[in-house]
Design a protein around this nucleic acid. Structure first.
Lengths: 129, 129
DNA sequence: ATGGGGGTTCCAGTCACGGGAAGGTCAAGA
DNA sequence: TCTTGACCTTCCCGTGACTGGAACCCCCAT
């Protein structure tokens, strides 16, 4: 399979696939004309990567997870540890965003949103007073 | 005030303050020795920027908000519009993160986390089967 | 004169790609 | 056979909002 077919199958942009090769996540073969030739195991890896990325894992996490995936003697505890650390990050981010949303929500509610200049949003940003 | 004092007062790193000058958000004066000299209005602006950034507004949003802040003839509707657009982005991100968290949570719960290799997390990433 | 704690500029790196240029390759149709 | 157009290749730059670090200047106290 050429890169375009793989892009179609996996839903990953060709650019992304080339990038993943660049950083050593996949190692497709090469045809005589220089085109990348992807075996089914390459496609499988790319699907794995796509799913892991969709769950928000960093590339480095993906590298780790892939290594565990291919290591038959892994301990599931190691996988779980990576996943838990990642979930902690996600939850921290959610908490941050929720705080922002709450503040913004209050400010937006308090703002008339008409053609007059008075604006509690700007007042707050300007240091309240 | 020199940049270090301003950094202390605003809580912004000196690097960030220089960056903000670079991109034209603040325009401190210069002493003869080349040092930046910040007036109180500069400090005020930087505090404004710090708060806006803490609410997650992009730098471009900050630029817009600052312009509105300094425009006495602004309409609060314009401010509200910016804030609402930003809140929509935040909510979209929260939704994404919640979806990830839910999926991750399930997978983590299903994983024994012991020294055996069987792992539903990797199974899922590998395409379930 | 020396030391230390300011300040300055500029360059490179972050993260995970995306855009676009310049050019090679291939299969199909006129 | 020639040409068209859809592929593919590499390479370099840009993204956002900084952060780290090098190399250097300035000022005050000892």
């Amino acid at each position: 399979m050429n890169i375009g077919d793989v892009a179609n199958q996996t839903g990953l942009p060709a650019k992304t696939i080339r990038y993943y090769e660049d950083i050593g996540l996949v190692k497709p073969l090469r045809d005589d004309n220089g085109y990348r030739r992807f075996r089914s195991q390459d496609v499988h890896k790319l699907n794995f990567l796509g799913r892991a990325r969709a769950l928000g894992f960093t590339i480095e996490d993906c590298r780790t997870l892939m290594a565990l995936y291919e290591d038959e003697t892994r301990a599931s505890a190691d996988v779980k540890k990576v996943a838990r650390a990642h979930m902690a990050q996600i939850e921290a981010k959610i908490a941050d965003l929720n705080a922002m949303r709450d503040t913004l929500s209050h400010l937006i509610d308090a703002c008339a949103g008409d053609d007059r200049p008075d604006c509690p949003i700007l007042q707050d940003l300007g240091g309240k007073a």
